[in-house]
Design a protein around this nucleic acid. Sequence first.
DNA 1: CGGAATCACTTGTCCGAACAAGTCGATGAC
DNA 2: GTCATCGACTTGTTCGGACAAGTGATTCCG
Lengths: 247, 247
Amino acid sequence: MAARHEEIAEELRRAIDRGEYPVGGTLPTETELSARYEVSRGTVRQAVAALTAEGRIGSRQGARRVVLGNRRSQSFAELRSFAQWARAMGRTATGRVLDQHRRPATAEDAEKLQIQPGDEVLQVLRVRGLDGEPVLLERNVYAAWMADSVERLPADCTSVVQALFEDIGMIFAYGEHVIDAVAAGAEDARLLEVRRGSPLLRIRRVTTTPAGRPIEWSDDRYVSGTVSFTVANSIGSNPLARQAGPA
Amino acid sequence: MAARHEEIAEELRRAIDRGEYPVGGTLPTETELSARYEVSRGTVRQAVAALTAEGRIGSRQGARRVVLGNRRSQSFAELRSFAQWARAMGRTATGRVLDQHRRPATAEDAEKLQIQPGDEVLQVLRVRGLDGEPVLLERNVYAAWMADSVERLPADCTSVVQALFEDIGMIFAYGEHVIDAVAAGAEDARLLEVRRGSPLLRIRRVTTTPAGRPIEWSDDRYVSGTVSFTVANSIGSNPLARQAGPA
DNA sequence: CGGAATCACTTGTCCGAACAAGTCGATGAC
DNA sequence: GTCATCGACTTGTTCGGACAAGTGATTCCG
């Protein structure tokens, strides 16, 4: 059951997308929206705050809100699940486990998963394709309490996120993403069918439960030219941060 | 004059950063914060909403909020200005214009800057260094109404954003960033002192005024290993979106 | 004509109340 | 010991009001 402000936000997104409020144009005032949707001004403000946060509209005190762009927003589930993302685009995704084994946690694992070095973790290497071409190499390190469930998945499971939700109700709730570019090493090159030293877009991420408990950390490497990532930033809300080094 | 909810958000950030609320631990309840800061519950909610949006805390109905991490947040100004970012880190940034000329807008320029193909634009090529090493190649295309002000800047101006603000009060308010990895071409390689084909992290961006008017679009290329970008994503707020192709 | 002043309008902030939806810990039953 | 239930507590939603801060259009004056 969606909250009223979420419904209104969704209706406004659709209205923007079909050009009812064109890019560069203005939205109705809060008072008008309040009357149209028969809700209080506070509820309208919550709805438009969501659109502001995702960079779809711009807002300044005293001035009508303006439409900044036709952003396709994406849920965390869709970002997190390659298969789900591909499906939403009408593309065919494949996923295959190349290697899976338990090992002692390194210092890096320990830091990222909030465990002790030497504790057991499960390492999984997957290659993912889009319309038959290898696109992404995924290296996941799962905390031990997740290992059993992951090992039960079939090797050609396309959506790990979906399967874990259905299997044990696991919700992947928060993810910290670090983005940089690296050169393909020998293994990357072979598995992704590119030249050694080719540019790869690397996304490293720690994912946690709704209560903040780390589930896994991962290192994804995309073949250059196959996938890009977008973020809207503004004075009011700036999700993207630059940092020195590969971090 | 900062709003009260912004002040409270900043105090909470500082409290988290100094370990008063450790990662994995909980924050005080809304009722407690409301009493402590002598504000209404609504104002507390606004403050913690900002921290939630930046991925610093996690929030679930019925459960105490949890601290997810010690994120260093970054303003849009800092993201937008390489020099300001470096200065905030205590590093030395340099910036030098290698080329600057007016030309007719391409179809891509026209689309991004909302002008007509063939309209005049100003193209600027800059190289930026960090502690003496070349790190970033910046290609900016400014709309004609910005060209005069940009041309007035000195060629070794370190912070274009700051200079334009001081010169004409120009505020860079919104930016849509597209991130991927590309191989260094001959020019890139020469200017950044890397090998041809080396991986570069590419950030393309359109920047607009507070009213949504496009100021410039740019193509930044970072040497691999020098800079990375972070974004926090969650079920509640997912700023990062994946898309197929280099876009 | 250009710049300043004015005014109607618009968004931002803060308050407080009421109710809904969910968590978590304690307790009791098996 | 495990599981279910309950109650206290916590966060999410919605309402409505009042005031502050700012924009943009119009008007006035030099």
